[in-house]
Write a protein that binds this DNA or RNA. Sequence first.
DNA 1: CGCGCGCGTGTGGACGTTCACATCCAGCGC
DNA 2: GCGCTGGATGTGAACGTCCACACGCGCGCG
Lengths: 335, 335
Amino acid sequence: MEPDKPRAPNIRDVAARAGVSYQTVSRVLNDSTAIRPETRQRVLAAIEELGYRPNEAARALVTSRSRTIGVISAQTAYYGPATAIAAIETAARREGYRISATYLASSDRASIQSSLSYLLAQGVEALVVIASQVRVFEALEELAVTVPYVALAATTGVGHRVAFDQIEGGRRAIRHLAELGHTEILHIAGPQDWTEADARMRGYLQALDEADLRPRAPVLGDWTASFGYYAGLELLRMRDFTAVFAANDQMALGFLHACRDAGLDVPGDVSVVGFDDIPEAAHLAPPLTTVRQDFAEVGRRAVERLLQELRGEPPADDAAIAPELVVRASTARPH
Amino acid sequence: MEPDKPRAPNIRDVAARAGVSYQTVSRVLNDSTAIRPETRQRVLAAIEELGYRPNEAARALVTSRSRTIGVISAQTAYYGPATAIAAIETAARREGYRISATYLASSDRASIQSSLSYLLAQGVEALVVIASQVRVFEALEELAVTVPYVALAATTGVGHRVAFDQIEGGRRAIRHLAELGHTEILHIAGPQDWTEADARMRGYLQALDEADLRPRAPVLGDWTASFGYYAGLELLRMRDFTAVFAANDQMALGFLHACRDAGLDVPGDVSVVGFDDIPEAAHLAPPLTTVRQDFAEVGRRAVERLLQELRGEPPADDAAIAPELVVRASTARPH
DNA sequence: CGCGCGCGTGTGGACGTTCACATCCAGCGC
DNA sequence: GCGCTGGATGTGAACGTCCACACGCGCGCG
C-alpha cells in the first residue's frame, strides 16, 4: 500500500510544483488572461509530470455549469436513436460538453418523470429528446423545465424542434407510389403517441389527398419487424391494396416476410416502401425502397442549436432537413 | 425578470424552511442515522415545496465519488452495443449510478486515448468497454487505469471480463452445420482486432477440428451487411462450400442477398448461420439460423459486477453466459 | 439518585475549483 | 522623479454538500 494518500493531484499541487499560485494554474487551464509564456510552460510541465486532471465536479460546482447535455431516448435499440446519440455525444464532446443519456424503461408517466428528474438533478444545461413521444413533451411542460431543449422530432415549426421533415418524407413515399400508378395504398403506422409516427401518417394522408386517392384506415403498429409480419399475414388475406407504406424499415421488413409466406411477389404483386433507410435495407429481399433519414446529421444539428442557445446566440436557420427517397427494388407498377 | 436570484434552492434553504439544521436535511437525503419521523416529514415537505434537488456536483466533490460509470463503445449503431448500453444505463441508474458513454470515432490510438482521458477527467469510478478492440485494452494498460473495468467481451477467464462465451457460440454454430452433414464450411469473420471476432473464429476452428473437418481460410469482414453481400458475390463464383458461418447477422444478411443474386436457394443450395440474433433475423429471407446473445443480460451483469467490486465485495460467480443456437430456416442438410 | 449511554440534532471544516478583487512591478509621459 | 497605467500574478471567498465531532436530553440501571 502507498502511504495511504492516493488523493489525486489538485490545482495546488500543480502550483506548488511549478512555483506559482493556484490561480495561475487555473488561468493556464482556462487560458484566460495573458500569462507569461515561460510561466505557462512551467505550469504545463508540472501538470504533465503529476498527471493532473481537472476535477470536473469542482468546476461544475463553482461555475454552476455542468457542461452536460441530457438525452432522453426510448428504450429501443433501433438504428436511428442509437446513431443519433452517438453523433450527439461526438459533437458535444468536441465542444467540451458531455452527455448524459437515459433510456425510458416504458412510456408511462412515472418512467418519464424519473428520467427527467434524474437528468435535472445532474444539472443538465440542455436536453435532447429522442423518444419523441407526446407524453415526454407533456412532462417537460408540466415540470416547467427551464433549460433549453430540442426534439429530434417530426414536424417543423413548433418551437424547440430540430426538424427532420417527416411529413414531407411520408409524402414523397406516397407520391412515388402514386406516380407508379398505385391507387390503393395502405399505411402501417407507428405508435400514435410518437410524433414521428403521427407525422409520417400525416404525410401519407396529405399525399393521398393531393393525388385524389382514397385514404385507408392505417394499421397502428409498434415499430417492430414482428408486428409487420403478423399484420401483413392478416392484411394479405384481403389483398385489397397494391402497395404498402410502412412507417419504418423494420415493419416493412416484417411485411416482406409475410408476403413471402403468402406466396406473393414484391414488387410484382405488392409494392412496399419503408422509412429510415437502415443499413440493412439495401440487402433485404427485395432491396427496400425507403425514405432516408440522416440521423447523425440531425443529432449534430441538435447539439449545434442547443449550444447556440446556451451562448445566447440567435438560433440559426431552422430549416428542416429534406428527406430523400431511395428507390430500390421493392416498388414497381401495379399490374 | 425575477429579482435576479434564480439560484436553485440548496440544502440550507430547505433547512430554514423546515426549521432544522442543514445537517438534518442531509441526513434525510441520505437516510442515514435515525431521524424522528416527524422531523423527516417536515423536511420532505420542505423539499417538495421548494422543488429542491440535490446538487450532484457538490456531492461528487465532497465525497470524491462521482457515482459515474464510464462506457467506451465503438461508433457503431449496431443492435448489440446499443442494447447493452441501454441495459447498463438502466441497471446503473437503479443503483444510483449514472453512466457516461463515449463513442469511438475511429479505432486509432488518438481516439481511444481521447475517450479514455475524457472519462477519467470526469472521475468515473468504473469502466465498461463495449468496443472490445484489442487496442482499447492496450490503452487501458498503458494509462495504468486504476478504476475497475470490465469488458463485454469474448472469452471467459481472462480477468476483467463479463463473458459471453463467444467461442462456445461459434462452436455451436459449426456443430449444428456439421450435424446436418456439411463438410465444407466457410467463415466470414469480423475484424480481427475485435476480441469478439477472434473468439468466434476460434470457435469455428475448434469445432471443425473436433469434427475432423478441414478448416478453410476465413474471409475477414467488417461487420457490415454490404461486406457480406460483396464477399458473397465473390465467394459464390467458386461455390466450393455448402455452408457459411458469418460472424454477425448483418454479414449473414448481406450474404443471403448475394445468394439471391446468384440464383441460389438458401438453405437448398447453401446453409447460412449468423451470430447475435438481431430482432430482424427472424424475418429475413429465409429466417436466419443464428446464435443468440443476450446483450441486455450481459450489460446488467457488467454493472452488477462492477458495483460489487466498488463495494469491495468478492466478485460473484463469473460464469460465462451460455450462447443459444436458434435454428430457423436458413440451414438444412446439403444435397 | 447520579451516571452513562444513545438517540436526535447542530456546528465547523473540508472537497477543488473559479471569481472578484488586491497587489506588485516595470515602463512611460509630463 | 513621480504618479499613473496596465500586464502578470497572488489572496480571500464562495459554490453545495458530507464527514467528524460536539452537544443536549431523557431514560435505565446500579
